[in-house]
Structure formats: C-alpha cells, structure tokens
C-alpha cells in the first residue's frame, strides 16, 4: 500500500473539552490529537461515555453550556479554525463544507411536516429556493435510492426506519458538503436494513469522494466499512490507524480485547476474552493509563505513569507503554 501524504480533512490538536456540573468542571476529552484523512471513511469506535459524541459536537462547534472547550484547536479542510470562529462564520461552512447527521436523526424528523418541507427548510436557511432547485433534490433522492418522487409528499410516519434514514442522508448531502460526520447512523435499524444503509454510505462516499467520519459503538460494523479507525476510551484516543493494522496487529490491548470479545458467526465454541470491570467514570480519573484499571496486562507503572503517544505514520498512533510485551501474554485473557 502506498501511503500518500495528503492534507487531512479535519485536524484536531490537543483538544480538552469538559462539562460544568455542580461539582465543578469534569474534563471529558483529554488532549485529543487526531487527523482525519480526506476521501476516506474514518470510524470512531468507543463505548458509552468514551467521549466520541463530544468530539463530534466539538468539531461541528455545537458547543453550548454546560459543555466547555478548555484548550486545543480544530482545523477543518486545512483553513477553517472552527473553535476561534464565531457562530455566524461557522454557520457559513455548516452543511456546505461539513455536515452532521446526529444520533437518531431519523426519529427526529418533524412528524407534521412532509419530506419536501424538510428540504424546503434546509434550502431556505441558505437563502435558496426550493422550486428552482428541485432538480438538485431529485438527484439527492436518487442518490440515496428513491427512484420515484412520491416520497416528497409523504410524512415521516409513513416511512420505514430505513427510508427515514435515507431521507436524513439525502438532506445532509443536499448542499454538497465534502466532509460528513455521522453519529451512530445505523442504530435502531433492522439488521437487514442496516446492511443496506452501510452499502449506501460506502457507495456515496466513493461516488462523491466524501471524507466521512462515522461514530459508533458497534465495532464490528465500523470494521466493515471504515478505512481508518480510532478507538476511544475514557476521553482519549487509545489507538488510531488503518483498519487492517487494527484488525490484524493492534498496538493497544483495548483494541484487541474489544475486537475479539465481539461474537461473530464463526465464534461458536470459541472462548471470548472478557474485559473485567467497568469504566470508573470521569470523576475518578486514573493517574496513569486510562485503561489500566481494566487492562489484564497492566503493571504498576501503567497505573502510575501516563503512557507516551507513539506515532508510526502520518495518521497512525497508539498509546500503550506495554507494547509489544503484552502480545506475548495474550493467552492470559482467555483463561
């Protein structure tokens, strides 16, 4: 594989984001530094409370109290420093350059407005007219697999979950953005429909050369479509790299454990590794490595000293002070 050095679509540097609560500021994202490549699908994998949606909100600058950015910068498309722009300026690029599909968007469509009125609103907010742009809408609908235009005259409740998701994707692409962030695009969908939506996402990404950022807890699904994958835990990116690297030769034990603890159709009779314990929450943040309290390979050093970040190519990096030693002890987790 030839690695070409290209300008990243999104470049996050030293991002610290917290939430203000009664007990003070709780920092969620800790020093997140990551480059999202252009024209690729990047998956952000993480369990609940790992900070993946917070990262997406920060990139879109959907920052409202109690959310607070402590430090760091986010550069979108090489020139827009999102965090130092004011809201009006960010609104200029939202939808046009970078578009966001929030979690469960398909269930948030206004039930008393027809699909065409949704398009109408989106276009109007950009000062565009619905009727003179009707061909754009038709094309967008075709792109997501609606062959007839009847859907425009339907209400959301008349559509199935998969159709609603297609409408949402069409709306997010209507202004021809180059970067799209999707937060859990397939949750709540039937497995068969989910597969179709994933195929659709992959096809659209290729046809339109989109830079796609997909956030999900479903690690199996992410590995099926992503080119790059970031694994988040406790507000940090523990590992980031191409899916092949993570799949075959993960640097961080959490990636390995997460991937191998997912039952697959062929895992019958095999023993799956278990990740002991639970994430302790942001209130009692560990001194050393964030995963040390649950990591079966952790040593005293892991618990006391935060590991260094090691970069190995333009995008890929990992944090783990026990690599490669933990690989020799991998048998331990199956006992």
């Amino acid at each position: 594989m030839v690695i070409m050095v290209t300008e990243p679509a999104i470049s996050v540097r030293g991002l610290r984001v917290g939430y203000i609560s009664d007990s003070g500021l709780t920092t969620v994202l800790r020093n997140v530094t990551i480059d999202i490549p252009s024209n690729k699908i990047t998956g952000i994998a993480g369990e609940s409370g790992s900070g993946k949606s917070t990262l997406a909100s920060a990139i879109m600058k959907f920052i409202n109290p109690p959310m607070l950015v402590e430090s760091g910068s986010i550069i979108v498309d090489g020139k827009y420093d999102v965090l130092s722009m004011d809201n009006e300026q960010v609104n200029e690029i939202r939808g046009k350059l970078i578009s966001f599909v929030p979690q469960a968007a398909q269930n948030s469509l206004n039930p008393i407005r027809k699909v065409k009125e949704i398009f109408f609103d989106v276009l109007k907010s950009r000062g565009m007219d619905y009727y003179s742009n009707i061909n754009v809408i038709y094309r967008a609908l075709e792109d997501v697999g609606f062959s007839d235009k009847q859907v425009l005259d339907m209400y959301p409740f008349q559509l199935s979950g998969g159709m609603r998701q297609r409408v949402v994707i069409a709306v997010s692409l209507i202004l021809d953005p180059r970067i799209v962030i999707m937060d859990e695009p397939t949750t709540g969908l039937d497995v068969v429909v989910q597969h179709e939506i994933l195929k659709l996402i992959k096809r659209l990404q290729k046809e339109k050369s989109l830079s796609l950022l997909i956030i999900s807890h479903d690690i199996a699904m992410l590995f099926q479509i992503s080119d790059y994958i970031a694994v988040m835990y406790g507000g940090q990116v523990l590992e980031y790299g191409s899916y092949e690297t993570l799949l075959e030769d993960a640097y961080n034990p959490y990636t390995y454990l997460l991937l191998h603890s997912v039952p697959t159709i062929t895992s019958r009779g095999k023993k799956l590794p278990r990740i002991p314990g639970d994430f302790e929450g942001f209130g009692r943040y560990p001194k050393g490595c964030v995963f040390s309290s649950r990591c079966p390979f952790a040593t005293d050093t892991c618990r006391e000293v935060p590991p260094e970040k090691v970069s190995y190519d333009q995008y890929g990096f990992y944090i783990c002070s026990r690599y490669p030693e933990w690989k020799k002890e991998v048998k331990k987790i199956y006992e």
Binding site: Q194, H195, L198, K202, I219, A220, F223, Q224, V262, T264
Partner: peptide, 11 residues
C-alpha cells in the same frame, strides 16, 4: 447470516 456485522468481512 450474510448481513450480520462481522469485522472480518468488508462492505
């Protein structure tokens, strides 16, 4: 069995 998410099969 075909559509079930499996990290080892690509879409």
């Amino acid at each position: 069995t075909k559509v079930v998410p499996n990290p080892y099969t690509r879409i």
